[in-house]
Design a protein around this nucleic acid. Sequence first.
DNA 1: TAAATAGTGTCTCTTAGACATTATGGT
DNA 2: ACCATAATGTCTAAGAGACACTATTTA
Lengths: 270, 270
Amino acid sequence: MTDVVMVIVMSKEQEQERANGVMEVKKYRTPDGIPADIVMFTLTRQERKASTKSLPRFDLKVMLIRRRSWPFAGAWALPGGFCQEDESLYETARRELKEETGVDGHHLEYLGVYSKPGRDPRGWIISHAFFALVEEWVIEKRQAADDAQEVGLFPVREALDELQLAFDHREILQDAYLRIQQQMLHTTIAKQFLPPHFTLGELYQVIQTVVPDFAELNFIRKITSTRSRQGILEEVRDENDKPMLSNQYSQRPAQLYRFTDFTPQLSIYT
Amino acid sequence: MTDVVMVIVMSKEQEQERANGVMEVKKYRTPDGIPADIVMFTLTRQERKASTKSLPRFDLKVMLIRRRSWPFAGAWALPGGFCQEDESLYETARRELKEETGVDGHHLEYLGVYSKPGRDPRGWIISHAFFALVEEWVIEKRQAADDAQEVGLFPVREALDELQLAFDHREILQDAYLRIQQQMLHTTIAKQFLPPHFTLGELYQVIQTVVPDFAELNFIRKITSTRSRQGILEEVRDENDKPMLSNQYSQRPAQLYRFTDFTPQLSIYT
DNA sequence: TAAATAGTGTCTCTTAGACATTATGGT
DNA sequence: ACCATAATGTCTAAGAGACACTATTTA
């Protein structure tokens, strides 16, 4: 990130104009704060008691923190904090994500703005939502170390259906949920939840966890054929060019794959 | 749009907490203004001097207004204005679109937030970009009636490549251009630029104007077959169930179509 | 009859979709 | 031998992609 420094040379008249311009801006009421709120998603691994090796099953969870002060004291809310003058909102989100959850350097994406009048009893506060995708182990490490705040990981459906979230955070979470489902099908964000090398079974589980409606009988065949979808995945091979296999989740070893950096362009017309 | 009224019953202690909370918010520096800027796209029809009837060719254009005061006096900029306390940013955008261009009730969609420090010499100003899609005739009517401001319609490529836009409006326009291209292929926004009934030739021209890379040799065949794409379009028929044709653009009459309300779900995995 | 658009014929190759079948190897 | 997962076989119908060809009017 490089900041832009703006140098402006002005005549006296221009300076007067500038002062007027600034005055004009200042004479209106301005918001009382511009926070960034973060919807942090993670996939947690369910314990399975199968008789043999079996595929992992996941839960899509969201991190919430319990508010300690007015307003909505005691309610669960999205982590977040106010934007400062010397940072962009993306930087705010990254800073708050790190400060409040100890997570840094992960997928962080802008979601939208929430500006409905009256959404925050503290005043005129316009919030910007981001969503982050983090692997489970990052959060586990953090939760152990942290005793400053009460944090919780909730299954998304439970958070939406059963919790009374602070502010309009239910609406934000709902929007984020729809967005991550869309992204899961349109882009390769699945890789945020997967190790560098993974089996097609794992990938399928990840997609299904985020998008329960997703079903594809011939998943393996479709992924491994398809010329138009021209290789969003590629087989992993070792130094001798032998296909690398994994039998972590099954008796029969399964081919390992990785995502390429190719994302196909979708269209409803072609 | 219905506003939400929030009623809160508080004890004295709670009221004290509330006051503290508000104080806490107030003691930080807050932005000097939160504007909404609008990227208004339209398709203008090119005059063609062909020997017989021919398909319309379009240009994708964006509306800009010339700034009259500091900063960037004389430069072209996106129309926009500041958010007021009693409205959401979407309402701001709708209001400004109407005030500055006389356009109301059209496709208006949120694009994103622009908050890089120093982006506005007037102070700490965080801008929200929207994009609007408007038919040509609406703007023509407006431009004739308006003499308050100098407004211009520029081909998008020209505005991006040759104009020095105010603030970071070039970046905003660039983002909006990418977004509209994406939307054109993923959704049915093409209908915003088309009459209720249209020929497949017209539709193809619209798509190609917004997404020059789009090319599809068997466009008609693909649109009219396809079970999976299950009818984003349907043939228009008259009261006697006869197919309705148009020979506006060709000697041979062409079937008229309309969009259904179906938008297919795309996926890179299916 | 040339021009400009609309639409069909034809051919090959690939994919979709649905199921059945086989492969693997540890408990 | 059974289990859970991985992967291939097989079949039909449909679509992709490329081009050639016909259709419809009017200037």
